[in-house]
């Protein structure tokens, strides 16, 4: 292996990092920056979903519940506790991790299909309650006027109030980095190997000393915590929380991102998130044609079906197959040289 080839993954990450940090400075216009924030949010959302769905194989269709409830926690408790951005985020994260633990212990009693549909039932209940418990959530009238984050700059009297989308963007970056690092660390270690073992054959996993429940819970709790934090960010970003934040449509989007991109692969999920959030907007922008949502949805549905039929490992699987072929053909050439 040449030095460059060995360095390449690092170079890619550094280049990606620079891009993520510099891009918004170039395009800080309202529309572009919103798309970028959206993309980052979907990255966090999808990675924490994929930790369970792609690696451990437990597809919870109820993931939006952590997002929505996390947002409501910030909206309802934030003003009462006066915690500030970091406090709100940590509170939502830890309570959602706790909820994931409790829900996990309960729901992991059943497996596969029953688990997926059970969690789906739970998110529907959560949404119905958000919609109908007027005293608590205001129902469809939403909780409004959530405080924007403020940071006191040390050693000065200046308080920085986060207002502009650009500021929110940089506020979100740490959560994205944290999520990617944690995802990478967990899935590329021995834990990741145990995850795959559980996904492929729970009985066999028990027979080599892996306790499936433990690893299912681990991925579920970490994912729930991260999404809780994301929900808290969302509340403080748009300053309104509505029952629609606990929407089933989020589940669909997650499935599209993860399965079109490539379940269980960091590259795949990143690609999926970027394509999903950027492509439709680019189409709208570039062609000056506005695609009605219904047509967009039809396209999503068709893409899902086509991917399942023709690229079962998603875009990432396709890339992997192509690079494998390329490496093989090179190996052969090298072999002939020698």
């Amino acid at each position: 292996m040449t030095a460059l080839a060995r360095a390449r993954p690092w170079l890619l990450w550094v280049a990606g990092g620079v891009l993520v940090l510099a891009l918004p400075l170039q395009y800080s216009g309202g529309y572009a920056i919103n798309i970028m924030i959206n993309t980052l949010m979907w990255i966090v959302f999808a990675l924490s979903f994929d930790l369970s769905a792609g690696h451990v194989g437990t597809v919870s269709l109820g993931h939006p519940a952590f997002f929505g409830i996390g947002a409501y926690l910030t909206a309802l408790l934030g003003p009462r506790l006066g915690l500030g951005y970091l406090g709100n985020t940590l509170l939502s994260a830890s309570l959602m991790a706790l909820l994931a633990l409790v829900a996990g212990v309960a729901f992991f009693r059943v497996r596969e299909v029953s688990f997926a549909i059970g969690t789906l039932g739970a998110v529907i209940i959560a949404q119905l309650i958000a919609n109908n418990a007027y005293d608590l959530t205001g129902g469809p009238l939403c909780v409004k006027g959530i405080a924007r984050p403020e940071f006191a700059i040390p050693f000065t009297d200046v308080t920085l109030k986060v207002i502009h989308p650009l500021q929110y963007y940089y506020l979100l970056v740490p959560l994205v980095v944290f999520t990617i690092v944690l995802y990478k660390a967990m899935t590329s270690s021995r834990i990741g190997r145990a995850f795959i073992a559980v996904r492929e054959d729970e009985v066999r996993a028990s027979a080599v000393g892996i306790r499936p429940l433990r690893y299912k819970l681990l991925a579920f709790v970490v994912g729930g915590g991260i999404i809780g934090a994301l929900g808290s960010f969302q509340a403080q970003y748009v300053t309104v929380v509505c029952p629609s934040e606990i929407a089933l449509s989020y589940t669909l989007n997650l499935l599209i991102i993860v399965f079109v991109g490539g379940a269980g692969s960091l590259r795949g999920v990143l690609l999926g998130s970027v394509i999903f959030s950027v492509l439709p907007r680019l189409l709208e922008q570039g062609g000056a044609l506005s695609i009605p949502p219904a047509y967009q949805q039809v396209a999503y549905g068709l893409i899902l079906i086509l991917v399942v039929l023709f690229m079962p490992d998603g875009i990432d699987g396709q890339i992997r197959r192509m690079t494998d072929k390329w490496h093989r053909s090179r190996e052969v050439e090298v072999g002939e040289d020698v």
Binding site: E200, D201, V208
Partner: peptide, 24 residues
Amino acid sequence: RTFQNVRVFPSLSVLDNLLVSLQQ
């Protein structure tokens, strides 16, 4: 133990199958 119907983890490599059996 081994199983009557032979169980290995299909998508893990041969080496990883062994490693995952030892790591715990």
